[in-house]
């Protein structure tokens, strides 16, 4: 599978992270179904992508997310208690309940925000890479975006900026094959996002996004290049969104069950579990025990969120400006 030697600790961290994402998303969906938030964009199926990327990052490296970003946040090490509280609009949430599911941010953890405007995060991430370069650090910036976002003009402007200035940024396109109901092969001319890198003087690599080990390898090289001052990389991770686009969307309105089954058969979590067992890194019993622990952590986060207070009414008009008079 992977040429890079991965130690057991890293492999188990990745598995635990992917389990946490899956279980968090499942619980968040239940909270939404109970009417506690209006709906959310689930990342179930896409766990491998941010996990295989963020495993290479430090706290000081910045990542930038989208409307579908719970998985990015968890992979970057955000506290799921604070995330769940944010989903429920609570004062204890990452954003004090002001941002919600589409806007989770945690600056200390290097998550500079999920963004609800498709493509809008890309130039901002480019700016974080600019800062890393100007200040002579070896920090990197990573921006996640969908196949749909690949058709926004700002991606092209940002890739060109990153290309001419050799900025330490990794553009990670999570190609989950759909933008809402629109198949990527309809919307992306040439049917490849990765190929577009050629126009901007950077490597463009398509990778199997259902395999965290494959993502790990490609992202490792991209991060190494960026830290070394060799410039940006575009990664197109081929993945799949298991759920509908948002809330109550029924994906069978625009795709077949056969297609879904095909991808689910290559489920990233199950693949990694199999790898860990085959290579005697952990037993099935150990991995199932880990799942139980994760479920308990998610349950604890859910209790914390539900027990937390809503923001004080005065919070309506705070944080609009730093100062204003």
């Amino acid at each position: 599978m992977s040429a890079t030697k991965l130690d057991d600790k890293t492999l188990l961290w990745m598995y635990r992270t992917m389990l946490t994402i899956r279980r968090f998303e499942e619980q968040a969906r239940r909270e939404a179904d109970a009417g506690k938030l209006r709906g959310m964009h689930s990342a179930v199926g896409q766990e491998a992508v941010p996990t295989g990327v963020c495993v290479h990052l430090r706290d000081g490296d910045y990542i930038f997310g989208t409307h579908r970003s719970h998985h990015h946040c968890i992979a970057k090490g955000l506290d799921i208690k604070l995330m769940m509280a944010e989903l429920l609009g609570k004062a204890t949430g990452t954003n004090k309940g002001k941002g919600g599911t589409m806007h989770i941010a945690d600056i200390e953890k290097g998550m500079l925000g999920a963004n609800g405007i498709v493509g809008s995060n890309i130039p901002v991430a480019t700016g974080a890479a600019l800062r890393a370069q100007v200040q002579g650090t070896d920090l990197v910036s990573v921006v996640f975006f969908g196949d749909g976002a690949a058709n926004q003009g700002v991606l092209h402007e940002s890739m060109n900026l990153a290309g001419i200035w050799k900025l330490p940024i990794i553009f990670v396109c999570e190609n989950n094959r759909y933008a809402q109901s629109t198949p990527f092969e309809y919307a992306v001319a040439g049917e490849s996002v990765a190929d577009r890198a050629a126009g901007y003087d950077m490597p463009g690599i398509a990778v199997n996004g259902m395999s965290v080990l494959d993502v790990y390898e490609v992202a490792g090289e991209a991060v190494r290049r960026a830290r070394a001052g060799d410039g940006p990389t575009l990664i197109e991770a081929m993945t799949y969104r298991y759920m509908g686009h948002f809330g109550a969307d029924n994906p069978l309105m625009y795709r077949t069950e056969d297609e879904e089954d095909e991808f689910k058969a290559r489920d990233c979590n199950r693949q990694l579990k199999g790898y860990l067992m085959e290579n005697a890194i952990a037993t099935e019993a150990e991995l199932d025990a880990m799942d139980e622990e994760v479920l308990e952590e998610v349950a604890e986060a859910t209790r914390f969120a539900n027990d937390s207070p809503f923001p004080d009414p005065s919070e309506l008009t705070t944080d609009v400006y730093v100062s204003y008079r």
């Binding site: 609009g89 309940g97 919600g100 309506l316 609009v320």
Partner: peptide, 12 residues
């Protein structure tokens, strides 16, 4: 509304 962005939290 007041001169502020729209909050997420429902009570706000």
């Amino acid at each position: 509304p007041p001169h502020t962005s729209v909050p997420y939290s429902r009570p706000l």
